[in-house]
Design a protein around this nucleic acid. Structure first.
Lengths: 205, 205, 205, 205
DNA sequence: AATGAATGAGAGTTCATTCAT
DNA sequence: AATGAATGAACTCTCATTCAT
């Protein structure tokens, strides 16, 4: 259909920004077209449907992220460093494709119920495996606490990372690496001040 | 014979479940009516509009939560215990009104832009103050790390807590208190195993 | 159905006032009920339908008016005096049943198209005959100008009289008889000052 | 190839005819669309709402009429000739835009209560001034009877003129000028035959 | 590559009406 | 005599989509 892949990219970026700001269902095709400086009907020269637009946005984001995660895993770091790297790549992804991540975070649960978006569930499974394995290995290696509830921890980590897409601004004070560092400090070592053995509930012996 | 307020409550609960499952915009009034065993038009005997339904759901949740938070603050606990209590109340709220929380988490940003839902922004401000104060006090009291980025930490805490509403099932394995305990362990002390080489040279023998 | 004809009358008056103020189609049954201090459904104890309410209002008005006109005709006055009497009775009817007249004036054309309201067309025919005869007799008797277009004049007379229902207030400055007198002065003798033979278009010899 | 404004005009004319025939409230948007040979939804490509359609119809009519009246006033004729000209222009307007006038006559009172249609009240005031001034000047100049109730006369004149829109057919026997002449004969000189006994003892030989 | 006009399905909402109580 | 709750049809309006130009 479309001749220029660049135009396509522009349009996808425009659409992603609108979807992220208003929500997928609340976004009309006309609004995207407005933002792109054309009429609603004209979008159909470039894309088959509204669904196909989000699909392409989400696939692009997920493919890229999967690639980054694979690279991290291929490096064969220890669990703690792997986690550091995964988190950092995640915040970088938010930095690069914030709108796509925000859409993913907000809409994937609903979209995944539809056949067309089955790939969302598949991706999620893969990512889940990556994280569960890393956490489990970390516990086995004695790098993470032995009493962690792995699945619960996975959810906490996953959600806090992605939810950042809803407030992160690429031009804000914090670089993605800085946010990742802060985030990791919190998650790895906690926000409590270093232990002075006076916590209220006596530390279970 | 069911008095009006009870029927209203039933309908609100039904609606909340549907909104939470499908998203506000994607939910049709007909679908809510189906779930309630009536026709779409009949809903309008009880409510003015689709908007007024979510509004009532969200107001109910926010009012209740504000009350709980106030009780916590009025207890005058130290920052660490205050945080523990706030988190626990939050997970209990998810336990009681999961759908309402899920709607709040997913839709409030978009809804708050509309005049009718300005109260959402107001509530959020109040909650933000509660958390920021608690965190600041904790740092001042030496209970939380001195190097915390307060705002960033606030966001992490807020988001992880609320996002739990999207996967929490009241009949699941974990009670809200159990989840709160796990969560607090993570956030307060981190997921890293107590490290012998980095800082304190072996915590508590 | 209804026990008390008085209650019925009250309700009809209330309904007539609302219909006259808002128009038949724009008036909801609920609004009438509100004005009557009851719920919409309760009206159906007294009346079969919204249609039956207007029908009763209009029939009441038309029957009464037909009676008055008949009395006038039965008096056997000359055309000029007959006209005077018909006009006066018409304004009195507006005084007594302003809302009913206003509804008739505004809605009868549309309503008459429906089988149920065929009686409107019938009444109108009768009235038309009364007027046409009176005018024709007046011309024949030399009391009205010989060059009158009878049908046109009939319409002018009919419309100006009825349209008064839309602005007439029973408690206003003018009594119905006073308005009738003014009206007749205008229609019979014109608004021009008594002829001084200096009209612009030379009075055709 | 029909340029947008032409299509718009066509659709407005179609809508005006339907509104005039059935009444504004009783007219569904589907019926207008039917009459225009399209589906209901398609109308919304051209117009924002049903309200905006009547608004445009009424504004068009009122603007044009105001222009004609202004031209008449600018001519600086005497009161009697001014009146003649105003009446003639009014019937011509009915000839050109009968449906619009009929809608104005029937619906403006109800519509004017709504903010959007406040312009109706404004126009009416202007027209009222035009007529009151003309009548007053005529009385002062001795062209109209000294004992006229100006406001009452204004209402009679206004209503009879506009109400003609409800029965006037452009293809009927009478041209607008002819109707205006008949009408003026009635209003200016009355329908009574020149009377020999009452006042002037035989007008002009 | 884009426009202008239309489609058709379905959305939220209204409303006359019904009926058990 | 009236209420409270519901029905079901219809209404205005929106929107993704199509297609001739």
């Amino acid at each position: 259909m479309s001749a220029s892949p660049e135009r396509r990219r522009q349009l996808l970026d425009t659409a992603a920004a609108v979807f992220a700001a208003q929500g997928y269902d609340a976004t009309t095709v006309r609004r995207i077209a407005d933002a792109a400086g054309m009429l609603a009907g004209s979008l159909y020269y470039h894309f088959d449907s509204k669904d196909s637009i989000v699909e392409e946005i989400l696939r692009g984001f997920l493919d890229e992220l999967a690639g980054r995660y694979d690279t991290v895993l291929a490096a064969g770091l220890g669990p703690r460093e792997t986690m550091r790297a995964l988190v950092t790549e995640s915040f970088r992804e938010i930095d690069r494709h914030g709108p796509a991540v925000a859409i993913y975070q907000k809409e994937s649960k609903t979209l995944a119920a539809r056949e067309r978006f089955a790939f969302l569930a598949a991706s999620q499974s893969t990512f889940e495996q990556t994280w569960l394995t890393t956490l489990k290995d970390g516990v086995a290696a004695g790098e993470f606490r032995a009493d962690l509830d792995i699945r619960l921890t996975y959810r906490f980590v996953r959600d806090t990372v992605w939810v950042a897409a809803s407030w992160y601004r690429p031009d804000g004070r914090h670089s993605p690496e800085e946010i990742a560092r802060q985030y990791l400090a919190t998650v790895l070592d906690g926000i409590a001040a270093p232990d002075r053995s006076d916590h209220s509930p006596a530390p279970q012996g």
